[in-house]
């Protein structure tokens, strides 16, 4: 068989076909809203964000300090063991300079680009990154490997959300900071 020997289906419509009413349509806007339970791990993660801290969860068997925190370890498939605070600093693993909004609409000429990034958080296991935004930086100066620090909302404005961190901004390397062991949260809340 050859594709060329068949008359293929699929009738292409142009935007003008819709505008000029050459094709009939019907519309539907789903009016569905969801309330996703946060669960134990993410519930605590959000509560700690509200308090201005980032908390991780440890699996002793795999020796991993995990972000976002999770109540079971997906590698060894057993419950994770304890909570641990990590720092609010980290390293840019990768970044983008986005001129497109979530729905593929373009950002206006006066709107600055969005700067999404994967940030490896200090204190978590190597490679444990979260997606967040970058700010207070000229996009041209961005580099993979750059040290960054969280810029938080004012305590009274925080709601217990990942957006309680406004963005991460580059930290100017004045001196090498010694890595202190992050404080342990200890036990149950």
């Amino acid at each position: 068989m050859k594709l060329e020997d068949f008359e293929l289906g699929g009738t292409h419509l142009k935007s003008s076909d819709f505008k000029q009413g050459k094709v009939l349509t019907t519309e539907w806007e789903p009016n569905l809203k969801y309330a996703w339970d946060n669960g134990v791990a993410i519930g605590r993660y959000l509560a700690e964000l509200k308090a201005g801290r980032i908390i991780a969860r440890i699996c002793h068997k795999c020796d991993r300090i995990m972000l976002p925190p999770r109540m079971f370890c997906e590698l060894c498939f057993r419950p994770t063991d304890e909570w641990m605070y990590v720092k609010d600093t980290g390293v840019i693993n990768t970044f983008s300079i986005a001129k497109v909004n979530w729905d593929a609409s373009r950002r206006g000429p006066k709107e600055p680009p969005l700067l999404p990034a994967v940030i490896e958080i200090d204190g978590a296991s190597e490679g444990m990154g979260i997606m967040h935004m970058l700010g207070e930086v000229n996009p041209k100066d961005l580099k993979i490997g750059m040290k960054v620090k969280a810029v938080w909302k004012k305590p009274e404005d925080r709601t217990g959300s990942i957006t309680d961190i406004l963005y991460f901004k580059p930290v100017t390397a004045k001196r090498k900071t010694k890595t202190k062991a992050a404080p342990k949260a200890g036990g149950k809340r």
């Binding site: 349509t25 539907w28 789903p30 969801y34 946060n38 959300s161």
Partner: peptide
């Protein structure tokens, strides 16, 4: 606690 959201799309069939 829970997190609220929606799937903010519409359809033209």
């Amino acid at each position: 606690t829970f997190w609220e959201g929606a799937i903010p799309v519409r359809y033209v069939y």
